[in-house]
Nucleic acid binder design. Structure first.
Lengths: 137, 137
DNA sequence: CCTTGACCTTCGAGTGACTCGAAGGTTTAT
DNA sequence: ATAAACCTTCGAGTCACTCGAAGGTCAAGG
């Protein structure tokens, strides 16, 4: 499959795939006679893996190392092992944080809806003012 | 108060405050005789407000508009509502991603542990060294 | 009074992770 | 056969900072 379809499958943009390749995060793929990049299912899997690591907020430098580790079978140095362990532990925290943010956003939405219902014309943004004062400071 | 203390109070970096000012998100502050930026409590409140909107993931363009609207006494409801709604949806997606990623990272950890168990003393880490050498030096 | 060090100034450049556009070649559907 | 959709590279642009150089200001200690 060519880059457009691959991007669709991996939920990345074609430009991002090319960028990851140029950054050494993804390997150089096979090319068709016309010079088009050609990918197969394992390639797509790798792209999805990288996308998930990025969604976590890992920098590309770290992802490059992790990807190399993943498909090289070479024993990782202790510092890298530690770094990855820390990162794995941090996922729980980030999930909790995200859950909190989600709740905050949802209740913010609800309050804004009800305020707009009450004062459709005026719509002075009480919610934001409120939030400003009330939130974790 | 000058920019250093303001940054401390608002939980922003001094460079970020100056950047926000140059981007038209924060207004130009009063200056001391020496030309130092001088802020008061309402200024700090505004900085905190901007910081929270950024933490929700809003782009500076949106925040600038919201801040201007807020200052001019007009309700920023619709822009804020739209932005919050978009962000809330994005958070749901990110949480699902994070859950899958968590499992993947944990299994990567296990794999690394077993590799180290198999070759406890080898640990040559070619890939990492390679990567480090190739890095911009 | 002088120096030291912390703080401030501007401006220009750098960073990370994309993202876009131009100029051109290829494939596919009608 | 031709139009539309897809691909190529390369260089430049974007966003939100972040840093460094070169210099001005100010309070405390010797």
């Amino acid at each position: 499959m060519r880059i457009g379809r691959a991007a669709e499958q991996a939920l990345l943009e074609t430009s991002t795939i090319r960028f990851y390749e140029s950054a050494g995060v993804l390997p150089e793929p096979v090319r068709s006679d016309a010079g088009y990049r050609v990918y197969d299912e394992p390639d797509i899997e790798l792209m999805r893996f990288v996308r998930r690591l990025r969604a976590l907020g890992l920098p590309l430098d770290d992802i490059r190392e992790i990807v190399h580790l993943r498909d090289s079978g070479v024993a990782p140095c202790q510092p890298v092992r530690d770094a990855i362990a820390r990162e794995a532990e941090a996922v729980d925290d980030r999930m909790a944080e995200l859950a909190r943010l989600r709740g905050e956003l949802r209740s913010l939405q609800k309050r804004m809806d009800s305020i707009v219902d009450q004062w459709p014309q005026v719509c002075v943004c009480h919610v934001i003012e409120d939030t400003k004062v009330r939130k974790r400071s």
